[in-house]
């Protein structure tokens, strides 16, 4: 059956990593599944949801045009909340959260690396901060241009930036009102 074959193709494209970046781009789906690829993705999404997974679509700007990426991520289930610990050490995770937050709040989507280091130094030794930043640039979570840090492809694909913005905005609102931020939105 043509439909089933396309479903298997979609699963393969989305789940089997063949390049440096995870998931699949829109043009690949169009090439291998045809123009009606969204119907196939909907069917695959139904199958994946039974396993607690979902297909996530991320639109990114690449070379002045918008490119759609599709990846499979865990659905926000109790299992994900229970087991979904990032594969980083606590110190590294803190540095990445700090860098992403600063970049997200910057006007041009970029922030001086030295500014990130300065702020992170208030919490961790400088050599740890530098090492963590180097690691995240290497892994593609951050991008370095000149002396600036930008969000890398993996951050866009793996991090729920809307949620981060909501958490930070919630904390900002709470601090403005003089209340306890942690009561509004848990950080864990």
């Amino acid at each position: 059956m043509e439909g089933d074959r396309k479903l298997l193709r979609a699963a393969y494209l989305l789940l089997v990593r063949r390049r440096r970046y995870p998931g699949v781009r829109e043009w690949e789906l169009e090439k291998y599944l045809g123009r009606n690829y969204r119907e196939i993705l909907d069917r695959l999404g139904e199958e994946l949801s039974r396993l607690g997974l979902e297909i996530r679509e991320v639109v990114l700007k690449e070379g002045g045009r918008e490119v759609r990426h599709f990846v499979v991520v865990p659905a926000r289930t109790a299992v994900h909340m229970e087991l979904g610990v990032p594969p980083f050490r606590v110190n590294e995770a803190a540095v990445l959260a700090l860098a992403i937050s600063m970049i997200l709040a910057s006007s041009g989507g970029r922030v001086k690396r030295s500014e990130v280091v300065e702020l992170a130094k208030t919490k961790l030794p400088e050599y740890r901060v530098e090492r963590a930043l180097n690691k995240f640039v290497r892994l593609g979570y951050l991008k370095e241009e000149d002396d600036d840090l930008l969000l890398g492809l993996r951050t866009y694909l793996e991090m729920d930036l809307d949620r981060l913005a909501a958490i930070l905005a919630g904390r900002a609102e709470a601090s403005r009102l003089g209340g306890d931020a942690s009561a509004r939105e848990g950080s864990g």
């Binding site: 789940l15 089997v16 990593r17 995870p22 998931g23 997974l53 996530r56 990846v71 499979v72 991520v73 865990p74 994900h80 979904g84 610990v85 990032p86 594969p87 980083f88 606590v90 110190n91 995770a93 803190a94 540095v95 990445l96 959260a97 700090l98 992403i100 937050s101 600063m102 702020l119 208030t122 919490k123 961790l124 993996r154 694909l157 793996e158 991090m159 729920d160 930036l161 949620r163 981060l164 958490i167 930070l168 904390r171 900002a172 601090s175 931020a181 848990g186 950080s187 864990g188």
Partner: peptide
């Protein structure tokens, strides 16, 4: 906000937003 958070809390922030790609 960042200044007011401890290392554990910042790491918790990342935990809250991380959705690892299944592959």
């Amino acid at each position: 906000i960042i200044l007011s958070l401890g290392v554990e809390e910042l790491a918790g922030l990342l935990r809250a937003i991380h959705r690892p790609v299944a592959d």
